[in-house]
Nucleic acid binder design. Structure first.
Lengths: 245, 245
DNA sequence: TGGTAGAATAATGTGCACATTCTGATTTTA
DNA sequence: TAAAATCAGAATGTGCACATTATTCTACCA
């Protein structure tokens, strides 16, 4: 009976599984880089040709991306890059607000020394990125900040959930604004939030987080994506399933 | 350009798609009925035989169930009914607490006449189920209550997310306790919460929801599943992919 | 000339057969 | 006797070919 309950240990990815993930990652990367505009149809044969893998592989990756909300599938019609409405983006940020204000409040109540250290380290990393004007890195760090807060709660489910919400909320932004615009998400806000948490000021931390998220959604709502159709071959230029940069 | 953005209308499910969903539902129903114990391996050929569909259909349904967290897949080994740890259940309820306390607080601030009506209707439905001792119905209503609260917020993303959390939190319970035990989730709590919301008492509503969820997780933690292995043929007795009861 | 019907083309969906990997039992060996 | 190795059976994974469905282009007619 007991051995029924035991968890199966994760084994070192054998080739095939790794390739599946590579295809999945390649498509996701193209989206994050803003190379695939909303409404674009992802044709399986074309993707298979471009990524140099079998169509079944592409198929599986697309299914997974659909399940995770990155893409939308219409039976017998194809798979498409979703066109998120401003309204949907607002909704996602609304849910994030609910979760993340709760998160910072909890952290105020129960954070320990290691958590404090990681928070400080993250803030200083962001400051470093600002100084060197490394926008790509700053964009990454900005997202990771929110993930970090979730992880510090020590709740695996929470982390996973928030990770999903984050990808969905950045997607609309990534789809419309290419890399060069990734310098918005004020690291100032992050630093202030951390300061409030370290001071164990729950009300202030929650308020700052609320304002921070409201600011982000406002900023995104103002943005209008440029209408530039693009060919799949161009979108995946430099992106391969075999080896990732 | 504009037609790139338009949403594709959902069409009336053509046969094949409906069959996919039927297989998916059949497996899910077997789980909800507690016929599949944690750790059970779901063999594709056996399922295909029992449900009288092709193996590919079973395959797709299993993949979907894995993506949604109902099942766990191990490459080259098979898909299994997950054995949720008490700890994981606690984590899920923790996330639910974050979301649902925020939900009731928001409802207190902005509910209207239709929302109030639906809440009252639901409570009276639960009372009815208690009077007639209809445990199956009461179990269903208990879950729907939480969904209802989310839906009244008018946030589609929120509803979807909470739906997922609910299925995952009831799963452990459904897997271990068969139908006869489905009379626990105090409808009293629900009635009190509704009363607090209608009184627009945000603090009290949040507190009641917190206690309610804490009570549920405590109740579940105390439960020890009975060790009864079961054959797939038995588990799916009376459950068909062709027609659902 | 504009619009519709129809055919050609291309993409998605599905079942099948085969390759690979795992499981369990039997045999071999220390 | 116990542990390791081997081998048969079964289950999962994958590519291919074909069926079905959508899309586009063309020709025809009002």
């Amino acid at each position: 009976m007991a051995q029924l309950r035991k968890k199966v240990k994760a084994r070192p990815l054998k080739g095939d599984v790794a390739m599946d993930k590579a295809v999945y990652d390649a498509i996701r990367r193209a989206m994050l880089m803003g190379r695939l505009l909303p409404g674009t149809k992802l044709r399986e044969p074309a993707l298979a040709r471009v990524l140099k893998v079998s169509r079944e592989r592409v198929r599986k990756a697309l299914h997974r991306l659909v399940h995770e909300g990155w893409l939308e599938a219409v039976p017998n019609r194809g798979t498409f890059v979703p066109a998120l409405t401003i309204e949907e983006v607002r909704e996602i940020y609304d849910v994030r607000t609910m979760l993340e204000t709760a998160i910072v409040q909890r952290l105020c109540a129960e954070y320990g020394a290691p958590a404090a250290a990681r928070l400080k380290a993250h803030v200083s990393e962001e400051r470093q990125a600002v100084r060197t004007d490394d926008r790509g890195r700053l964009f990454g760090l900005s997202g990771e900040f929110h993930i970090l807060l979730a992880e510090l709660c020590g709740n695996e489910q929470l982390s996973r959930l928030l990770r999903g919400l984050l990808t969905r909320s950045t997607m609309h932004f990534s789809l419309s604004a290419p890399e060069r615009f990734h310098n918005c998400a004020g690291p100032h806000d992050h630093a202030d939030i951390v300061k409030a948490i370290l001071a164990r000021d729950a009300r202030k931390a929650a308020k700052l987080m609320l304002d921070h998220l409201l600011g982000l959604v406002e900023w995104q709502s103002a943005w209008r994506p440029p209408p530039d159709p693009v060919a799949l071959e161009d979108a995946f230029r430099g992106i391969s399933a075999k080896r990732q940069a």
